[in-house]
Design a protein around this nucleic acid. Structure first.
Lengths: 154, 154
DNA sequence: AAAGATTGAGTTGTCAATCTTC
DNA sequence: GAAGATTGACAACTCAATCTTT
């Protein structure tokens, strides 16, 4: 394992990856133990509810969740079976489908949020100083935008 | 969506989650497009190779990868089929199995590392200042340790 | 023909039950 | 009986192929 990454950088990377796994797992379990919806479902509902008109095309949903299109299809299938989401034909483009929230979906969203929020606060934010939170938001936001760029691989 | 998390904190959390997904995805694709082993396999090989004596119990492997025990079993099955890893009976405890690296496993590890390292540098570290790297490593390391604690959920 | 979405087949991971050793 | 590991049944996601609308 030649030193292609400086040690400090590697530490940061590892902390980043492992912390993500550990924290997400804890929140997931917490939601489940309280009979609430899984985190991915929550993500779907939030994405829809915060989209203009509370309606979101499947494609856009897939992108926003870092999923494939088929993944989004399967996922919305479940949510629809559970009665949290409804599919409609896109008004301007007959090819497209848009996902919308049902009343139940809105309720499920509101129920899950406090538990999710408690996880974010208790496991993540409460361990960080205001300065760290600021730095992390700004720095990782920058990394995120860069990672969405086309591809600068040689 | 009542304000149970302060806006700055929510920004930081979202940046954290989305950046993770985006960056991991890019690295994964990069490895695949070059015919190298997937990231999880890499993680397994690293975990083993950096364990004392280059041998690691299944249980410890599962923990270090944030996987279930059965997940670890399946994973090592594949690696073993591919000839990168070998299972042996634990010397002191007949119940346990330890995973060890094969010669091929070591080669696969060394081949993947430059590409992985390039991803870490190019997508992550190169977008961050030295101060940010330091802060992220320290802060997220603290979050990680906290997330491994038993469970302080009410 | 291109883009949106879905389906079939296969892979990866989980949970609950089981086997083995302590 | 408890812990380590594995197996069977099943859930989640991906790729490639397909269908529909533009």
């Amino acid at each position: 394992v030649t030193k292609l990454v400086e040690p400090r950088g590697l530490d940061a990377w590892r902390a980043f990856v492992q912390t993500h796994a550990a924290v997400i797992l804890r929140i997931e379990r917490d939601l489940e133990s309280r009979g609430l919806i899984p985190l991915v479902w929550y993500d779907v509902l939030v994405a829809i509810s915060s989209a203009p008109g509370r309606r979101l095309r499947m494609r856009a949903l897939a992108d926003s969740l870092v999923l494939t299109r088929s993944g989004a299809t399967r996922l919305v299938d479940k949510l629809e079976q559970a009665g949290l989401v409804r599919r409609e034909i896109a008004p301007e483009d007959g090819r497209g489908a848009v996902a919308t929230l049902t009343e139940q979906g809105l309720v499920a969203l509101r129920r899950a949020w406090p538990v999710y929020a408690r996880g974010i606060n208790g496991l993540f934010l409460s361990r960080l100083s205001a300065r760290e939170i600021e730095t992390i938001g700004r720095a990782l936001g920058r990394v995120h935008r860069a990672a969405l760029e086309p591809s600068d691989s040689s």
